[in-house]
Measured scan of single mutants.
Amino acid sequence: ETQAGIKEEIRRQEFLLNSLHRDLQGGIKDLSKEERLWEVQRILTALKRKLR
């Protein structure tokens, strides 16, 4: 995994995270989306740690 590859994956995950946040802010309670949001946040945290 290169730095560029990790950064690209971070961009993808952040896009997905923002999309999930928008969907959930629409007021629709969706447990699967909430679980996915937490999963994406965990992935992002792990990726950012790899960059250090």
Score class of each variant (00 low, 15 high):
N18Q: 14
L31Y: 09
L47M: 12
A46S: 05
T2L: 08
K7A: 11
S19F: 07
G27Y: 04
R36C: 05
K29C: 13
Q25T: 10
K29Y: 13
I28A: 08
L31K: 13
R22A: 12
K29D: 08
L37T: 02
A4T: 06
E14T: 09
I10L: 02
D23Y: 08
L17Q: 03
K33N: 04
H21K: 15
L51K: 01
R42I: 05
E34F: 15
R11A: 09
I10K: 01
T45S: 11
S32H: 12
D23S: 07
R49S: 11
K50N: 04
R22G: 05
Q41V: 14
V40C: 05
R49L: 10
L16M: 03
E1K: 07
I6H: 01
L44Q: 00
Q25R: 09
E8A: 14
L31P: 14
I28T: 09
T45C: 13
Q13L: 15
L47A: 00
E39F: 05
Q41N: 05
T45D: 13
E39D: 05
A4E: 13
Q41E: 10
R12C: 12
Q3A: 10
Q41P: 00
G5S: 12
K33T: 12
R12L: 13
L31I: 12
E14M: 12
T45A: 14
L17C: 09
S32C: 12
T2M: 09
G27D: 08
R12I: 07
L17S: 01
R36K: 11
N18M: 14
I28P: 11
K33R: 09
E14Q: 10
S19Q: 14
A4F: 07
K33W: 12
D30V: 03
K48Y: 15
L51C: 03
Q41H: 08
L16E: 06
E8M: 07
R22P: 02
I10F: 01
S19M: 14
Q13A: 13
E1N: 10
L47R: 00
L47H: 00
R52T: 11
L37H: 06
E8K: 09
Q13D: 02
L31T: 15
K29A: 10
D23G: 05
E9T: 03
D30G: 03
E1Q: 11
Q25F: 06
R11D: 03
L44M: 02
K48M: 08
T2N: 08
A46D: 12
I10V: 02
R12V: 05
L44C: 02
L37A: 04
Q13T: 12
F15M: 15
A4K: 09
R49W: 04
Q41D: 03
E35L: 11
R12W: 05
S32E: 14
W38D: 10
T2V: 09
R49Y: 05
L37C: 08
L17G: 01
L47D: 00
T2K: 07
S32Y: 11
K7I: 14
K50H: 03
N18W: 12
L44H: 00
H21D: 04
W38V: 12
K7N: 06
E34T: 11
S19T: 09
R49M: 10
K7V: 10
K48C: 08
L37Q: 02
K29G: 08
R52H: 12
A46R: 07
E8L: 09
E39G: 03
R49P: 00
S32P: 05
F15W: 09
A46H: 07
K48P: 00
E14P: 00
L31S: 12
Q3P: 07
E1F: 10
E39W: 06
R49T: 07
Q3V: 15
Q25M: 13
H21N: 08
L16F: 04
L51F: 04
Q13M: 15
D30E: 04
K7Q: 12
